[in-house]
Design a protein around this nucleic acid. Structure first.
Lengths: 149, 149
DNA sequence: TATTGATAGTCAATATTTATGACTAAATGG
DNA sequence: CCATTTAGTCATAAATATTGACTATCAATA
């Protein structure tokens, strides 16, 4: 007899947590005036420095395909959150640069996440949360470097 | 100046880890003979006890809508992983019960995840991993109980 | 028992998100 | 100059999630 459903595994927990985080984040972003931004826009906005970045770089950081990033950037341009500028160092490339509105969204999203994190830090305890976050960073990095054996 | 892209937040990390876990899990499941199972099938299979469960219960546990669960169960029936049985206690309800093949998939998926977890446990250390996992469980549970204020 | 409100599951339509392959233009390294 | 790689786009398909409405059944009770 196969033993099922006794203990939550990493996959379930990460999936559940991800969905729940997303729900709160986008509900609050909408409350704060960013009603049109959708979850996948985060794969660009969350990784976008103020001075801008190339689409390929955003794809690499977020772990998504460059094709998706291209489409997402199109939508963000449409929403007025970013603009495309030529990259002076490489005429093939374009820099994706946040607008004022984009910087506002990024700031608010970070603030919301920071509040959520503070809530959980108080819940599980300072020290445990510190270890949790450090482990999560290391595990995420390590898991992303998994290659088909 | 808005401070962007300094430190990875919970949302990014969880998203990246989730995608990366999914990639390894389904690549290995395919290697082990389960080539047709797709990520969302996990929302049913991962939470399915050997004796079966109701669709609504699966929806509640996984945090997904019951409509999606219904479609997923349809697909799993098609794939031969589960069957629907009437629930003797309630004529409205149906029990979703894993078949032999379903139990095989569930067992293999759990084994793959367990191996992945062992890898990360050795990487970050026994004690840190224990704290990480306990915090993750607590945080996932707590975050799921967030309600629109 | 007849009525009322809640629950389990499904149908249908839409919205959203991700994946695949091919292609152009430009850079890079001889 | 040439071969190879890289940045980005186009087009199409596949996968995934959301919404509202609907039927059958249950549960409680007047």
């Amino acid at each position: 007899m196969v033993d099922t459903a006794r203990e939550a595994d990493l996959g379930m927990l990460v999936g559940q947590l991800g969905r729940a985080l997303q729900e709160e984040l986008f509900a609050k972003l909408a409350e704060q005036g960013h009603r049109e931004v959708r979850p996948r826009h985060g794969t660009v906005l969350a990784f976008l420095p103020p001075e801008g970045a190339r689409a390929t770089e955003l794809a690499r950081r977020s772990g998504q395909h460059k094709q998706i990033v291209g489409v997402i950037v199109d939508e963000l341009v449409e929403l007025g959150y970013v603009r495309r500028e030529p990259d002076p160092r490489d005429r093939r490339a374009k820099l994706v640069v946040p607008t004022e509105s984009g910087l506002d969204e990024i700031g608010k999203a970070r603030a919301i996440l920071a509040l959520i994190e503070r809530r959980h830090r108080q819940d599980v305890g300072e020290e445990a949360y510190r270890i949790f976050k450090a482990a999560l960073e290391r595990i995420a990095l390590s898991q992303r470097s998994w290659q088909q054996s």
